[in-house]
Simulated scan of single mutants.
Amino acid sequence: MATNGDLNRKLRMALVGGGSGSFIGRVHATAAVLDNRATLVAGALSSNPERAKASAADYDIPEARAYTSYQEMLEKENALPEDQRIDFVSVATPNHMHFPVAKAALEAGFNVMCDKPMTLNLEEAEELKKVVEKSGAVFAVTHNYTGYPLIRQAREMILNGDLGEINAIRVQYIQGWLRTKLEDTDQKQAAWRSDPAKSGAAGAYGDIGTHAYNLGRYMTGLLPDKVSSHLATFVEGRKLDDYGTTIIRYENGALCTLTASQISHGRENDLAIEIDGTKAAIQWRQENPNEMIFRQNGEPHQIYTRNPDAPFMSPMGVAACRIPAGHPEGFFEAFANIYRAAFDAMVLRATGKDFEKKDTLYPNIHDGVEGMYFIQQCVDSSQKDGAWLPLKHEAARR
């Protein structure tokens, strides 16, 4: 079978951010090439020109296409013949650079894979939505947890009515790495995440709270109505929240309790969700992603395992699997599933065909705007002592 079907070639990728020592840059680069449908050919890997050039060797990017700024990269890539220039740009920078890089890439005609949260604030997100719609390009937000096979399995089960009407969601994302004021040690990841100029109005809620919110929305499809939030900064002198609790009320009357923490001793990346319906309930944890618990009163608990050959797996769950049951499949593969879904759309665009822009398997511009609205409303609610504020946004009405 030809690579990428009718396109009959690999998609060409450029990476912005992700210089030497970066975690998320390496994740993007690995996820994008996992299915052999793309190749990393260019990059502007750091805002420091020397570091940008030096980091290129880490990714096997040729010296001629190791650029010292994203502006230079877009200009020179656009000047290349069509059969050489990049197809998409992956944005793996701190939050404050997501908007300018994504906007410039879209206006240059390139597709975009953008890390979350999508922008620095809601105003940028709403403007970027207009740019995406005008450009006709593919735009994806890497809420990678939606790519896990059992998350997609659960989504299909919920939408098929296996849980009945959804009454409650309990979701948490608990970490402990910022229990001390790590940003004072010049640790790069802590420094920008705790800086409002680079991270935005929220700390833990922008970094991991958005993942928790997005996961509940993706799995249930419930439309949000109102939100009440209390954010806190427990490490003295820190400028942004490092802990928070939120209640979300959905339009059908369901309630969600959401907790995000980066100051809980010994906790690593404990993203966990429980969903209660009138017929059944499910539970899933990211640190044990290949199992999901299904419960019904009066019945033995069922443990769903990630098994592409099992008759209980849904088509969407099977499609997200790459290896046989029993072999752990996790973070990189889930991330790659976001890329794979976006690649399908990129191929359609490149071959002159229409592609779905709203109801997509990958998180899109609408999800990105909604995530920024969630952050804004949580911050505002907390500043008003937990006042109930609207959580409806036109992005969610799509």
Rank of each mutant, 00 (worst) to 15 (best):
D6K: 11
L7E: 13
G18A: 14
S22G: 01
D35I: 15
N36R: 10
T39M: 08
V41W: 09
L45G: 02
P49Y: 11
P49R: 11
E50Y: 01
A52S: 12
S55A: 10
S55R: 06
A57E: 01
Y59I: 00
D60Y: 01
M73R: 09
L74W: 03
E75F: 13
L80K: 07
E82H: 07
Q84M: 09
I86F: 10
D87T: 04
V91L: 00
F99W: 09
V101R: 09
V101A: 10
A102W: 13
E107G: 08
G109D: 14
G109H: 13
F110V: 06
F110R: 04
M113A: 15
P117K: 12
L122D: 02
E126K: 08
L128M: 03
E133I: 13
S135N: 03
V138W: 09
A140L: 10
T142W: 03
T142V: 04
T142M: 03
H143T: 10
H143N: 13
T146L: 14
T146I: 14
G147I: 05
P149I: 08
Q153A: 15
D162T: 12
E165R: 12
I166C: 03
V171I: 15
Q172I: 03
Y173R: 09
Q175V: 06
D184V: 00
T185E: 03
T185M: 00
Q187I: 05
Q187Y: 06
Q189G: 11
A191E: 10
D195N: 08
P196V: 12
K198P: 00
A204I: 09
Y205I: 00
G209V: 07
L215S: 01
G216D: 08
M219C: 08
M219N: 08
M219I: 14
L222S: 05
P224H: 02
L231D: 01
F234W: 07
F234Q: 01
V235K: 00
E236Q: 00
K239R: 12
D241Q: 00
N252V: 15
N252Q: 15
A254H: 02
L258P: 07
L258V: 11
A260G: 02
I263D: 08
R267E: 14
N269V: 12
D270P: 02
A272E: 08
A272C: 06
I273K: 11
I275P: 02
A280F: 01
A280C: 00
W284L: 08
R285C: 13
I293A: 15
I293N: 15
G298D: 04
P300V: 15
R306P: 04
R306D: 10
N307P: 07
P311L: 12
F312I: 11
F312W: 10
P315D: 06
P315K: 07
M316C: 01
A325K: 14
A325T: 14
G326N: 06
H327F: 15
G330I: 14
F332L: 07
E333N: 15
F335A: 14
A336P: 05
N337P: 03
N337M: 04
N337Q: 03
I338C: 10
M346K: 02
A350F: 12
A350M: 13
A350D: 12
G352M: 12
D354H: 14
D359C: 08
L361T: 15
G368Y: 09
M372F: 05
Q376G: 10
Q383A: 05
K384H: 14
D385H: 06
G386E: 05
G386H: 05
L389M: 03
L391M: 04
H393V: 13
H393Q: 13
R398C: 05
